[in-house]
Design a protein around this nucleic acid. Structure first.
Length: 555
RNA sequence: GGCCCCAUAGCCUAGCCUGGAUAGGGCGACAGCCUUCUAAGCUGUAAGUCCGGGGUUCAAAUCCCCGUGGGGUCACCA
């Protein structure tokens, strides 16, 4: 029940004048509307009188111009505890594109932020009622992939040192691709002849030579298998992998180039075809935004336009999860789509960079912090702890649980931070299990579910028996779930869910320590408490799920 | 240089959109709590120029302006 909107309507005061006080002694809801009036205190007193007449209000009093409202938890509580958490519906189709990391090596921690935010947004939008399609845009052409392809063709052998460094992963296709890349790159930078072979390959592929294009694409597709394995292991799945090369093969890119040539912004700059977007705020040194190079090959932006027009056919809305480095290009893309007369609903969720703090990661050459390694190290750490606390547990089961916890820790540590803030990534912080972490939330959920296993869930209960402060705090916060989901959608901000669920788990832990459930003598109180724990476990598990975090059976 | 993002205790972070009651948390430190639904938990203590300076307002961490520091971007790269 959205109490604030209820009070707003009944008292005829805009919602923004209501807030939830930090302290229960100041009521469940506070109203600060009286501050805007001449006779502040007198007005507040009148508000109190009005509020007292409402059904949801238990009592109300004013502290100066503040009006502190205490709600009737019997009514709200009964409604909340008997309801199922329901998915929204009929919000329409949306294509969410995320990750889209270049298939030139294993996925790295910096890039993981994209996948985690993207996957979480997919879950949040889905829960909110959208029909979500998850897309990965594969850059299967371009210089890096060409270099690797060249390396494979010329049977370049990677150096032993590198393979030893990543010994555990040496047979994973993404790592193998990376090994080849490092060595091929070395060779090419030493010899101009090799470099021109790459240029030749690029020119052929980007102008539409099918054979070359397919050859390069194969390299990318192979690497992608490894990347996808890592993502699947973390519970991140896609509906579609869209290959950039397709938009050259099907000639879409060239058709769009023809359309761009008809625009009044069209220019030819030193033989290259471009559009002058300076009046839209895109001042370029070269004087225009190039879409076809002097040699007739396509650039990324042109293929991106083709891609977005293709995606637009699939859904009425699109959302791209992109690093802040893509802001400029994204705005160019939107501007060009508009100039082409395409009215499409395209948004971006930009996030700031992840920098690597620990020397452990920053000093090494090439990739230094593959996600696989972080997760594996986390699993080892958790595994030890699990077999300590659960003596007779089977190895395989312990490892499965360890994985859920390690992944939960990593996901939470990244998702809890506001997307506009840079993350200085610390390996140790990401694998912490106490305090505001994923495992803390998982633990609260495990405790609740374990307790519930030992009893029936009562269908008859009365929330008026929940009188303790700890019970009311928990109830009050459970009631906020709906609002938080909405906020996360509006802001494209999974961290809102992360902070919510930590606090929710905290209120539960407090309740758990202070109020016995199963051993409670009074049947009425016991039933109400069981129902409270039941609702809590459902909402917390859903919140965890919205971040892509699973709940293990034991911890 | 132009444009965009960020700045809150030793470290990390919430609050900023929509201005109001002593600026919430977490880590680390210190002190307590396990014969009771799993202590990955709970309780308490110490720790703050909310980057600096102006302005608006009865009221500014929050809004506006000017700075400072950090990051991003302005490719015939993707």
């Amino acid at each position: 029940m959205d109490v604030i909107s209820e009070l707003s309507k009944k008292l005829n005061i805009p919602e923004k004048f209501f807030e939830i006080p930090k302290d229960t002694s100041m009521g469940d809801i506070a109203c600060k509307y009286a501050f805007t009036k001449e006779n502040k205190i007198k007005y507040a007193e009148q508000l109190v009188k009005k509020a007292l007449k409402l059904k949801v209000v238990e009592t109300a009093r004013n502290v100066g111009p503040y009006v502190n409202i205490f709600l009737s938890w019997t009514q709200i509580g009964n409604e909340l505890l008997k309801a199922d958490i329901l998915k929204g519906k009929n919000k329409g189709k949306i294509v969410i594109e995320h990750t889209s990391t270049n298939p030139t090596g294993p996925i790295h921690i910096g890039r993981l932020r994209n996948s985690l935010i993207g996957d979480s947004l997919c879950r949040i939008y889905d829960f909110y009622g959208f029909d979500v399609k998850k897309h990965y845009y594969v850059n299967d052409i371009g210089r890096q992939v060409a270099i690797i392809t060249w390396g494979i063709e010329n049977k370049i052998k990677p150096v032993k040192e590198l393979i030893e460094k990543y010994d555990k992963y040496k047979n994973k296709p993404d790592f193998k691709t990376f090994f080849t890349y490092v060595e091929a790159y070395k060779k090419i930078s030493k010899n101009i002849k090799f470099d021109s072979e790459i240029d030749d390959m690029l020119r052929k592929s980007e102008s539409g030579d099918e054979k070359t294009l397919r050859k390069i694409s194969k390299t990318a597709r192979n690497c992608l298998k490894g990347i996808n394995k890592t993502l699947m292991d973390m519970g991140i799945k896609f509906n579609s992998f869209d290959y950039e090369s397709e938009f050259i093969l099907n000639k879409d890119a060239f058709r769009i180039a023809k359309q761009l040539e008809k625009l009044k912004e069209f220019r030819v700059i030193e033989g290259a075809k471009a559009v002058d977007l300076s009046e839209f705020g895109f001042g370029k040194r070269s004087g225009g935004t190039v879409f076809l190079r002097q040699n007739g090959t396509t650039v990324y932006l042109l293929r991106d336009i083709a891609y977005h027009l293709w995606k637009a056919k699939k859904a009425s809305r699109m959302l791209n999860v992109l690093g802040e480095d893509h802001k400029f290009e994204f705005n160019e893309l939107k501007t060009l789509l508009k100039l082409l007369g395409k009215d499409i609903n395209l948004d971006a969720c930009h996030y700031s960079f992840v920098t690597l703090k620990d020397a452990k990661m920053s000093t090494r050459k090439g990739i230094t912090a593959p996600v696989d390694r972080l997760v594996d190290e986390g699993i080892e750490k958790v595994y030890k702890r699990i077999i300590e606390t659960n003596k007779n547990i089977k190895t395989e089961r312990a490892r499965k649980i360890a994985k859920k916890i390690a992944v939960g820790a990593v996901k939470y540590s990244i998702l809890k931070i506001d997307k506009n803030k840079q993350i200085s990534f610390s390996w140790d912080d990401a694998l912490k299990f106490e305090g505001e972490t994923g495992p803390y939330c998982q633990y609260a959920c495990v405790r609740a579910k374990k307790l519930l296993k030992k009893t029936e869930i009562p269908s008859r209960f009365d929330a008026s028996y929940l009188v303790l402060n700890e019970e009311k705090e928990l109830l009050r916060y459970l009631n906020e779930f709906e609002n938080i989901v909405k906020e996360a959608v509006v802001k494209n901000e999974p961290s809102a869910i992360a902070h919510y669920m930590y606090k929710l788990a905290y209120y539960f832990s407090k309740f758990y320590e202070s109020a016995p459930v199963l051993s409670e003598q009074s049947r009425y109180i016991r039933n109400a408490r069981i129902r409270l724990v039941y609702t809590f476990s459902k909402i917390l598990e859903k919140s965890l799920n919205l971040l892509g975090i699973e709940v293990p059976a034991i911890m």
